[in-house]
Measured scan of single mutants.
Amino acid sequence: NRKASRNAYYFFVQEKIPELRRRGLPVARVADAIPYCSSDWALLREEEKEKYAEMAREWRAAQGKDPGP
């Protein structure tokens, strides 16, 4: 049972969880929050997504994983 790799979207969703909880939505973990975040993610510009892509690269580097292209 390996841990899933964390991509840019994972970090975006993780950042949104406190806001979703404040709105009273039932989000205990990232998987619960995904349905509420997909439309917001789709509206982000590539420059805005880069922040989360960098977080994912840093996480992979800390895990000793290949950052890929």
Rank of each mutant, 00 (worst) to 15 (best):
D32E: 11
S39P: 14
S38F: 07
G68A: 09
F11W: 05
R6P: 08
R2T: 14
G64T: 09
P67M: 09
K16A: 10
G24V: 08
R2N: 08
W41I: 00
I17A: 04
V27S: 10
R22Q: 10
S39Y: 13
E19H: 03
W41Y: 05
F12H: 01
R57P: 03
K65P: 09
L20C: 03
E58M: 03
V30E: 06
R22C: 01
V27G: 03
R22W: 03
G64L: 12
E15H: 13
V30K: 03
K16V: 04
A31S: 11
P67T: 09
E54L: 09
R45G: 10
W41L: 00
A31T: 13
R45L: 10
R2A: 04
S5L: 03
D40T: 10
Y9I: 10
G68C: 09
R23S: 02
Q14Y: 09
Y10P: 00
N7H: 06
V27M: 04
A4T: 13
Q14K: 11
P35I: 03
I17G: 04
G64Q: 15
L20K: 00
V27R: 01
R22H: 11
K65T: 07
A33V: 03
A56M: 08
S5K: 08
P67W: 07
L43I: 09
S39D: 14
E46S: 08
P18E: 06
D66P: 11
A42I: 07
P69R: 15
A53S: 14
L43E: 14
A53T: 09
F11I: 05
R6L: 13
A56G: 06
A4L: 13
R57A: 13
A53Q: 08
D32S: 01
L20S: 01
A31Y: 08
D40N: 12
R57M: 12
Q14W: 12
D32F: 00
R29Y: 10
I17Y: 01
Q14L: 11
A31I: 03
Q14G: 06
Y9M: 13
P18T: 04
I17M: 07
R57Q: 10
Y36H: 08
S5H: 15
A31E: 14
P67Q: 10
G68Y: 02
Q14A: 08
E58Q: 08
E58T: 05
K65M: 04
R6K: 04
A42P: 05
V30Q: 03
F11T: 05
P35Y: 00
R29D: 15
E19M: 06
F11L: 05
A4R: 10
L44Q: 08
F12A: 02
Y10D: 15
R57L: 12
F12S: 02
D66V: 13
G68F: 09
Y9D: 08
W41M: 00
E54T: 15
N7E: 14
E54W: 06
A42S: 12
P35W: 01
A33R: 01
S39T: 14
V30C: 08
S39M: 14
E54G: 11
Y52F: 15
L20Y: 03
P69N: 05
Y9N: 08
R21L: 12
A33D: 02
E19L: 04
R29C: 14
R57C: 10
A53H: 13
S5I: 15
I34H: 06
P69F: 13
E19G: 07
V27Q: 00
K65D: 08
N7Q: 09
E19Y: 03
C37V: 09
W41V: 02
D40G: 01
P35L: 02
F11R: 02
S5D: 14
R57V: 10
E54S: 14
K16Y: 02
S5P: 07
E58H: 15
A42M: 10
Y10T: 04
L20Q: 01
F11S: 03
Q63P: 11
P67G: 12
E19C: 03
A53V: 12
I34E: 10
I17T: 04
A8Y: 02
C37W: 00
N7A: 00
Y9V: 07
K65W: 02
R2E: 14
P18M: 07
E46H: 10
D66N: 12
G68R: 11
A56T: 05
A8L: 01
Q63L: 05
R2V: 06
Y9W: 07
P35M: 08
A4H: 00
R57I: 05
A33C: 03
I17W: 06
S39Q: 12
P26R: 04
A8R: 05
A31W: 06
I34Y: 11
A33Q: 00
L20W: 02
E19A: 07
L43C: 08
I34P: 00
R6V: 04
E58C: 07
K65H: 07
R22D: 11
Q63K: 12
P35R: 12
W41C: 00
F11M: 11
G64A: 15
I17K: 02
F11G: 02
F12L: 02
A8H: 04
L20N: 02
S5R: 07
D32L: 00
Y10M: 05
E46M: 09
R45K: 12
F12Y: 13
D66M: 13
E46Q: 13
V30W: 07
R22E: 15
Y9S: 03
R6Y: 08
S5V: 10
Y9F: 15
R6A: 10
D66C: 07
E19S: 08
C37Q: 02
K65E: 10
C37I: 07
R22A: 12
K16P: 00
D32C: 01
Y10V: 04
R45S: 14
V30M: 08
G68N: 04
W41N: 02
I34M: 14
I34R: 09
Y9R: 07
E19K: 02
A31M: 06
V27I: 06
P67I: 08
F11C: 06
R6T: 14
K65G: 11
E58N: 00
R57D: 11
R2Y: 14
V13G: 01
L44I: 04
L25G: 01
F12N: 02
A42R: 11
R6G: 04
Y10G: 04
V27L: 05
V30Y: 10
E46F: 08
Y10C: 02
V27E: 01
S38R: 15
V27N: 12
W59R: 05
A53I: 07
G24A: 05
Q14E: 15
K16G: 02
D40V: 11
L43F: 04
K16N: 14
Q63V: 10
P69E: 15
R29T: 15
Q63A: 12
E19W: 05
L20D: 01
P67V: 14
M55V: 08
E54P: 05
I34Q: 07
V27A: 02
E58V: 07
R45Y: 04
G68K: 12
A53F: 11
Q14F: 06
A4V: 12
E46K: 12
P18W: 01
P67H: 13
P69L: 15
A8E: 06
N7I: 05
W41K: 02
L20M: 05
